[in-house]
């Protein structure tokens, strides 16, 4: 059958002027109220949680659990009476913390470790972000470097400590090197994952709106990849902190400052178990604090703004 194209004209029969305006009979204002009514029916205001409710939902459960664990620990000490040098009670650990505080060791160690972890993390962000963008947008590089980077993410960064000591000696460079090897792959891979998850439609919109390459990267790709990127940053921080502790435990002395890892190592050498436990708790606490103060709110805000954060019924 040859392609046939016909043109037909439909002539509306007897349309009265009134009928012509059809559903727009009445004024434009009527239409607007109709539409506004439909909008109101189809959207429901989201109830924001009050600060008290957030506290009750978010902070209370872990605190209660923590108190319960400490109580159980104390209870065990009182009932079973184990050897105090091998199983210190919560009070011994608390005493140890206050002692370390009063000598100023604790503050120094926390500040040293936190600033090193923070600086190392920021350097890792500065390296990992462009690397991730390059990997995400440049296929050949991704094929070449992608597996290596995933491998590095699996490799425990402690493994780098001996090599780093041989290269950089007992200096801060060793610590930073180990931190970077831990954090950069996580950050880059997180960004790559975030970019991969961008719905293709959003890029098409960018193209249609006339974005050039730079505008596409900064105004579309990066913001769209934020959830994955933030997850990568979070993991990058965790890896930074872990790697830092490992490096500080192994590499003590030289020009390396006194951090929490060094404090841990020192307590072990003194066979001071309460001190060891106290330091572990402080390391844990700092990690949790950074997560709670920096990453959790950022993530919550990000996801809530995009309607991805579901709190209802939890």
């Amino acid at each position: 059958m040859p392609p046939e194209t016909t043109t037909d004209t439909i002539v509306p029969g007897s349309r009265e002027p009134d009928a012509v305006s059809g559903s727009t009979a009445g004024s434009h204002a009527d239409f607007r109220t109709l539409e506004a009514g439909l909008d109101a029916l189809q959207t429901s205001p989201l109830a924001e949680k009050g600060p008290w409710r957030r506290f009750a939902d978010g902070v209370l459960p872990p605190v209660v659990l923590l108190l319960a664990l400490i109580a159980a620990w104390q209870f065990y000490i009182v009932i079973a009476k184990p050897r105090p040098d091998l199983t210190p009670g919560p009070l011994d650990v608390l005493t140890s913390i206050t002692d370390l505080w009063s000598t100023g060791h604790l503050q120094t160690a926390v500040v040293t470790s936190l600033s090193r972890g923070g600086i190392g993390f920021l350097i890792a962000v500065a390296i990992g972000t462009p690397l991730g963008l390059l990997l995400a947008e440049w296929r050949l590089l991704r094929r070449a470097l992608g597996p290596l980077l995933s491998g590095l993410q699996v490799l425990p960064s402690v493994a780098w400590v001996p090599a780093a000591i041989l290269w950089f000696g007992l200096s801060d460079a060793t610590v930073y090197f180990v931190v970077l090897m831990g954090a950069v792959p996580s950050i880059a891979n997180g960004l790559v994952a975030g970019v991969d998850q961008i719905p293709p439609q959003l890029r098409r919109v960018g193209t249609v709106l006339g974005a050039n390459r730079v505008e596409m990267a900064t105004l579309v790709v990066l913001p769209a990849a934020m959830p994955g990127y933030l997850a990568g940053l979070k993991q990058g921080w965790a890896f930074s902190w872990r790697s830092l502790m490992a490096a500080e435990i192994i590499a003590v002395g030289g020009s390396i400052g006194f951090g929490l890892g060094s404090m841990l190592q020192q307590s072990r050498e003194l066979a001071d178990l309460p001190g060891v436990l106290a330091t572990i708790l402080v390391i844990l606490f700092v990690g949790i604090l950074v997560e709670l103060v920096l990453f959790a709110p950022a993530e919550r805000r990000l996801l809530r703004r995009r309607g991805l954060y579901l709190t209802a019924g939890r």
């Binding site: 392609p3 046939e4 194209t5 016909t6 043109t7 004209t9 439909i10 012509v20 559903s23």
Partner: peptide, 16 residues
């Protein structure tokens, strides 16, 4: 995909 047919509709203002 080809264009098979075409209809032209007289425009007398909005239709329902």
């Amino acid at each position: 995909g080809r264009i098979r047919n075409e209809w032209r509709i007289e425009d007398n203002g909005p239709r329902r």
